[in-house]
Design a protein around this nucleic acid. Sequence first.
RNA 1: GCUAGCGUAGCUCAACGGUAGAGCUCCGGUUUUGUAAACCGGAGGUUGUGGGUUCGAUUCCCACCGCUAGCUCCA
Length: 729
Amino acid sequence: MTHVQLPDGSVKPYPVGTTPLTIAESIGPRLAKACLAAEVDGVIVDLQRPLPAAPPERPLQLKLLTERDPQALGVMRHSAAHVMARAVMRLYPGVGLAFGPTLAHGFYYDFDLADRIREEDFAKIEAEMARIIADAEPFERFELPRDEAMAFCADLNQALKVEHVQTGLADHPTLSFYRQGEFADLCRGPHIPDAGRIKAFKLLSVAGSHWKGNASGKPLQRLYGTAWFSAKDLAAYLAQMEESKRRDHRVLGKQHGLFHISHDVGPGLCLWLPKGATIRGILEDFIKAELLKRGYQPVYTPHIGRVEMYETSGHFPYYRDSQFAPLFGHPAGAFVDRWITQLETGELTPENERKYFEFADLLECRVPEYQLAAPREARLTALKAWQGQQERYLLKPMNCPHHVQIYKSQPRSYRDLPVRLAEFGTVYRHEQSGELNGMLRVRGLTQDDAHQFCTPEQVEEEFRQTVQLVQFVLGSLGLNEYRVQLSLRDPQSDKYVGSEENWQRAEQSLRHVLGELQLAFEERAGEAAFYGPKADFMVRDCIGREWQLGTVQLDYNLPERFQLEYIGADNRPHRPVMIHRAPFGSMERFVGVLIEHFAGAFPLWIAPEQARILPISEKMQDYAVRVEGQFRDAGFRVRSDLRPEKVGYKIREAQLELIPYMLVVGQREAEEGTVSVRDRIEGDLGSMPVAEALTRLTVEVKDRRIRQTAPPAEPVAPVEDALGEAHEY
RNA sequence: GCUAGCGUAGCUCAACGGUAGAGCUCCGGUUUUGUAAACCGGAGGUUGUGGGUUCGAUUCCCACCGCUAGCUCCA
């Protein structure tokens, strides 16, 4: 017998091998019909999956999943991926199947296919899918031992699946498959009972991908789709995608003159236009004031630094590929650099080496110690010695080494700690061209950076305060929904530096403080920086999209590498701990996210132009200018629209420019000393004395009030990790 | 960087082998205006760059630059 406990708490016995479906039927036919899958002890399974034995004192926890459960949505989408693959196989015979997992809002399937799938082809694939769904054939699970499974995949001509059974699933003695009509696929499942349960779906896009996500792996075509339990849900999702498009910061940034990326300056290099710069300046002032209150000290550091310093920090060797090339003082600098690299990797043939040697002379790079007959190590030493004597600078990819030098510039006592050095530091990173995206991913960015140097005992308190700062900062901008990701190292990987002990200590501290602050956080292995673990703030915007913004990182490593010290109470030198943190992340990215979050309609305290004075006719110009002066004197960013246009035209324009307040002034206002206030959200608020309007706006700024122009519809919720590692097979 | 698609006036788009067009913006004029668009006129282009095919290229081909989506990456 097995014992099953339902969500209402009741425990009932059933014969072993009973399926969730049978149980559902025993409860009621309507439920049985509505069920899509079941959750047994937290694991989602097929309705037809026999239940294992369980004693009455530890019954199986069974939850029957219907359309109301988000997990069921994930299961259905995975089935939709199978349906799509089946349709593609019918239309493109010989297609190879890779993986087809679910996503937060849909699914994809990777295909190995010589023909190019284009968006024009979607209609016919969707039509084929619709046929398959109309047939409503069941998904049937079956299992095979490894050898048979491999032979089965080979028979189906699915080479990638065979490879995956051999490699990724090497430790699985038996493998499961799902069959649906003529279509069978290696798959962990689970699936919905039959394809007829897919009520609304749509193919979204096609793009390239690689086998097993490896950039050098076999190129595949990835077909993206989404599926829902009702046409209404699908429509809501598509509407949200439209909304994302409407909020695109690149479009709004251009429209409202916030920033510009010029072909002539270079890709990924952001030009802040006056309005964008105003927004950034306000945010910077806001942070600076906050840092002052919290004991930070401002510093400024140069945009370049010696390569050797970044070799010490580890950034240069680790991130070489995504940095701008070093600036060499000697014309042969880059040449010698390549020479060294080739010598080190053994790529250099004796003949080429002779050429290098001759060419070096032409470039007036004289290395007398370099002997072609000498051992390789000696030749390398000679070249490196030459290189060491030359000027070699790096555009700074990180601020930390510079701040470390400031820490080191004087002896430090434990009484001085924590030392908190803050700088809006601009850094340059040569991001891959395909990664660039408006302000969200750029090659030159300014971090609202700071480095805190503290004693090991102070780490937790310092970390706590820093997390609270990030919370305060995000909250001030109306970004109140976020989750914290605790990014830890991948114990398998060798990309991390530093001792095991320090890593454990650092990870433990972060975990402890986050727990204490009662912050919901999830741990992610393999996401840490190479020098330490970090807490990343994943912020949800008003239409439900997540952005990684602020970050707080713990670092026991750089202090080690740079031999940082402070004198302790025992009068002996000790090693401090560093915290790297940036509440916004980068100004570029943060402002980009804010543009999308507010759809360009910034709250009054941030808006580049807070109010515009609109005289009814040219006769009221003098009064308009006088009012403008009064607002400007009170610290507002205002201007007057003195063009000889009708007021309706001026209002329309100001409204489209998302100016928070319009102050209409005509004959009446001029006589009474009032302004007619128009709010961009509420519309006409009527006339009021200038002083009253000033107070109104002043309060709104002081409270940093956030009023959305158009409160967006309830975001379509993502299905989180519905099937975990389902794509593994 | 990879795969695919795309680069036409300041912006949004049309023309797709045969003299490059519209709306908005901009400029000039008329109108002196009361809460989302007054009217008239004008200017604006080496069709991303460089080659090639052709009598003729914005259109077809190649290379480069850039943009977009996705992949990979993100200190």
